[in-house]
Amino acid sequence: MNIFRLVGDLSHLLAIFVLLLKIWKSRSCAGVSGKSQILFALVFITRYLDLFTNFISVYNSLMKVIFIASTVATVYLMYIKFKATYDSNHDTFRIEFLVVPVGGLAFLVNHDFTPLEILWTFSIYLESVAILPQLFMISKTGEAETITSHYLFALGSYRALYLLNWIYRYYFEGYFDLIAVVAGCVQTILYCDFFYLYITKVMWGKKLSLPA
């Protein structure tokens, strides 16, 4: 474990709870893409199937349980409890256009042709594009609530920190996982224009609005 990965995991945890609290407190999921949340739930479920078979540490197992539970809870709040506030008219990204190609790629490019490893690879590839429905929804509505932009900033920062973690581990531990690094770069690049808007607008107290 290194500081980049620890801060990255905490940033990821913060993002998930910022969103969960926003929906719970405001009793509304306006401006939030339910499709992205479904994809994140799929990412965690397919990635953490080794929860019971591969014990790494208490921290690792605890975080896996928290990530799965909180993301499933978010999907539950959006599609069941506060369904009336779900903005399905703007959350129209065709996620099958993400899941199918990512599933095919996971079969073709992976470290090990075993069920668990293919599912892990699918999860890594899917996570890199899972935010697209959310970014697409913001581009359609033209703006995002400030709390939603904080969520996105924490979520985007987590994988950027993981890139630093992989540089650290490469030099100090000789650890290198090409699949995770490439997917992590794609994932972080997708946030770039949001990061620009966030730093130039939200940090100065303005609302995040996309140029029409």
Partner: peptide, 10 residues
């Protein structure tokens, strides 16, 4: 790739 097929990251 991680030793003995285990992924130690979240």
């Amino acid at each position: 790739h991680i030793a003995d097929g285990k992924h130690d990251e979240l």
